[in-house]
Design a binder for these strands. Structure first.
Lengths: 228, 228
DNA sequence: GTCTATAAGTTGATAGAC
DNA sequence: GTCTATCAACTTATAGAC
């Protein structure tokens, strides 16, 4: 449900057994890493549909094409697997989007940010859905991350927005809500893809419709934010 | 994830056992109706946090303050209960918002629609969350409703939007995406309340912050939609 | 109408043969 | 490393006493 825009400065470790997870990650053979990645990918798909408590390890195993016991060989528990999925998503997002710099011009900076978020929604929709489920459920796992790292990132950028507003480059709205609006719109194309497909009558959201979505979202939000 | 704006013209019946549900509804004593409403309310709260497959009837029973067996006395199965929750939400939404009429002026019509959607998100956030979970899960229960009734309502209003665009009263964006943007923004204040609270540092989203949210959302979207 | 007891099935997790 | 067999705990749902 939102991203850090800066490159990762350190390795994120969500949850209680970070040391164990880290050591497991470091001492991995190539095969182990491949299998863990295979399971992680299958788990992301299952968690995206059912959330944490609704997902079954059996379904993860079937999605990965492995016996159920193997899942628990590579991840010590269902919760461990879920934390690793969340961590993997965060690290991917951390690396995928650039920083919004103080000196940059708001129209270009925000356009780039919106386009990057849309690209993430389209390329890895299940990641967005896992996050949506997690937050709707009350953010039991990533709550700490939201309250600390994401909050400090947002607070920093709120100051940038206020600078733009003082110079008349951004309309006078609550800067926090600027983020809420951008996140809501860009992520809806991943999270509510089912609804969007049904209403557009498309089986697959093709490249054309994707471009139309980016164009519409960018136009509406930017026109609403940049004074003329 | 979206609403009918017209008043309900008939009773919605989701799912396979509509007749049974209806007869049960009609021949109810006052006490039965009260208990069913109590359970429905508790169920909405539980399903909003865990989705269908993640929810336990035990939790519904505790939330309602009833023994577990009583839940299955009033609703014949977990799935039946879930369908009734979805149906109840849809009917509430159907009745809560007025129609967007052809002759009305887009600025006022869209402002009223956005404000009504925001009010629904704030007054009954769990309803929005149940819907979000349902759609992220692939809309197994309300998919038919989305593809038929909601689609025909949207298609009708797309024509109205195109009329506005021909008269230069609405900017030239894909009308479908106008809905996607409005729904995304208004519903984010219910679905992602956890995140918003954490980032704003508020324990409770008070009336002041609610008013600021309505103002910001309305301003950004409307300025992006209405040409000047 | 209400609730205890329990049936029938599924779940996360483990032990141990290979 | 892999996989079968299995456990204890928990799930939905039902039967039947009150």
């Amino acid at each position: 449900m939102d991203l850090m825009l800066c490159p990762p400065r350190f390795t994120l470790v969500l949850g209680r057994d970070g040391e164990l997870q880290d050591s497991k990650k470091i001492n991995q053979s190539r095969i182990q890493r491949k299998k863990r990645a295979l399971i992680l990918n299958a788990a992301e798909s299952v968690f995206a549909r059912r959330g944490f408590s609704g997902s079954r390890l059996k379904d993860v195993a079937e999605e990965a094409g492995l016996p159920k016991a193997n899942i628990l060989y590579y991840y010590k528990s269902k919760e461990d697997l879920y934390r690793c999925v969340c961590q993997d998503i965060l690290e991917n997002w951390l690396g995928a989007i650039g920083e919004i710099s103080v000196g940059s011009e708001p129209n270009e900076a925000l356009r780039k940010y919106i386009e990057a978020k849309m690209e993430l929604s389209m390329q890895r929709p299940n990641a967005s859905r896992v996050f949506a489920m997690e937050i709707i459920s009350g953010a039991p796992v990533i709550g700490d991350y939201l309250a600390t790292e994401l909050k400090s990132w947002v607070d920093k950028h709120v100051l940038i927005f206020q600078g733009w507003q003082n110079r008349g480059q951004l309309v006078d709205v609550s800067p926090y809500h600027v983020f809420f609006v951008i996140w809501a719109v860009t992520q809806t194309y991943a999270d509510f893809e089912t609804q969007i497909k049904l209403l557009l009558g498309d089986q697959h959201l093709g490249l054309d419709e994707y471009k139309r979505a980016v164009k519409s979202a960018t136009q509406i939000i930017l026109c609403g934010l940049i004074p003329r």
